[in-house]
Design a protein around this nucleic acid. Sequence first.
DNA 1: ATCATTTTTCAGATAGTTCTGAAAAGTGGG
DNA 2: CCCACTTTTCAGAACTATCTGAAAAATGAT
Lengths: 174, 174
Amino acid sequence: MLVASSTEWEVARDDFVAQWGALGSHWGINRTMAQIHALLMTAPEPMYTDEIMEKLQISRGNANTNLRELVGWGLIQIIHRKGERKEYFQAEKDIWKMVITIAKERKRREIVPALEVLKSCAERTQSESKGPGREFHEQMKELQEFVEFGIKVADTISSMKHASALHWAMKLLG
Amino acid sequence: MLVASSTEWEVARDDFVAQWGALGSHWGINRTMAQIHALLMTAPEPMYTDEIMEKLQISRGNANTNLRELVGWGLIQIIHRKGERKEYFQAEKDIWKMVITIAKERKRREIVPALEVLKSCAERTQSESKGPGREFHEQMKELQEFVEFGIKVADTISSMKHASALHWAMKLLG
DNA sequence: ATCATTTTTCAGATAGTTCTGAAAAGTGGG
DNA sequence: CCCACTTTTCAGAACTATCTGAAAAATGAT
């Protein structure tokens, strides 16, 4: 999966890349995409496609697709170097920004559509006045409100600077 | 996938089950497991294996495996009725408890192991004094601290009653 | 405009995951 | 200690997601 690394830190890095890939796949993120992300996060310099293919031992198509996907998520950006045709890629290294980016994307792609279904389920069972139908309606309503509240909290935290968020969290921890 | 439902609320429920299944599969949770969970969440009464098989049109083996898995996650419990051999299943309906249960399990299964790798990566590169090796070390250290802090926050929130968490969140929202 | 280089695309191959179904194991009442 | 009923297991089948690689398209320097 990875080509051999020479220096000590690169060996540790290979572990990190593997773990990040495994973590991703437990959270519905393509393993390769997560590995490329881990690789770029820990890259001293921006990398280009062939370097990534070589390091992770993956095909050009695979590398290209997942790089585009990462760009689509806003987790990496394309760098153009003067006098070079090739595209280089570099990852956002700030953890706080990274987490917020991921949260925003998942909200947009998965939470909001799910919320729409909850709303529709609640709405369509408005008129149920008793029994299981009513209980279902109330459960959907409750879920809907829970998710909407969660979104508000997440949005508020996302809009904070890392330091303010930390401050808030510290107060919480007492 | 689902057998036809008669009443209006049951039609909405089928949508909910399907959506919950889709959501699960985007978050690394087996679609069937999520569907069974959704089904039980919205069941007026505890259900037994054959009812679930029938409703979701799945095999006995599949139903059994995923029911065990849900029990393992602590999301559903087994009910024994006097004078009956069969096992009935019922889901926790309290959303707050449900979310905390899921968070705890994911922490145990995925976050803690990932944290161990981060620690190991940081430790093994302690001695790097400059250059890319040092940068890598610092990045791992930072990630490690971020995750540890996140765990603390999550643990604190998890230990709160729903009402206190709500109160805290309201203050945050200002 | 040409052309070498780089990126994109996508049909088919592969790998990984989930499901089925039937046999085996387990269980409690009598 | 049977036996009818229930649960569990797991080899092979089916399905889904991901990957490959080569051809096509795009690009920018000259």
